[in-house]
């Protein structure tokens, strides 16, 4: 009986331990970096492409969109890095 009580105590303490330890909180930055970069670029290029289609200014908006999308992708990578450093 005392063995069971001790086991219950240990089991009750376990989840609290996990919650308080910041190292066990995963951010999975390494899984997110590549696709975050590519998708930001894709959105930038896509927006530029549709602006080009609409206003008939063929390559200009797409090039601008490419650069803005790249900046936004690198910014999201920088933020992920900061998050990973914290945790």
């Amino acid at each position: 009986m005392s063995d069971l009580k001790q086991r219950i105590k240990v089991a009750q303490q376990k989840p609290n331990k996990v919650k308080n330890d910041p190292k066990t909180q995963p951010s999975f930055g390494f899984l997110r970096i590549s696709i975050d970069l590519v998708s930001s670029m894709a959105v930038g290029i896509g927006i530029g492409f549709f602006i080009d289609e609409y206003f008939d200014t063929k390559p200009i908006a797409m090039i601008v969109g490419f650069f803005l999308g790249s900046i936004s992708g690198f910014l999201s990578i920088y933020r992920l890095n900061q998050q990973m450093k914290k945790s």
């Binding site: 999308g69 936004s72 999201s76």
Partner: peptide, 10 residues
Amino acid sequence: IISFLSRPIS
């Protein structure tokens, strides 16, 4: 705005 719109895609 671009990084906000890229969220569903990523």
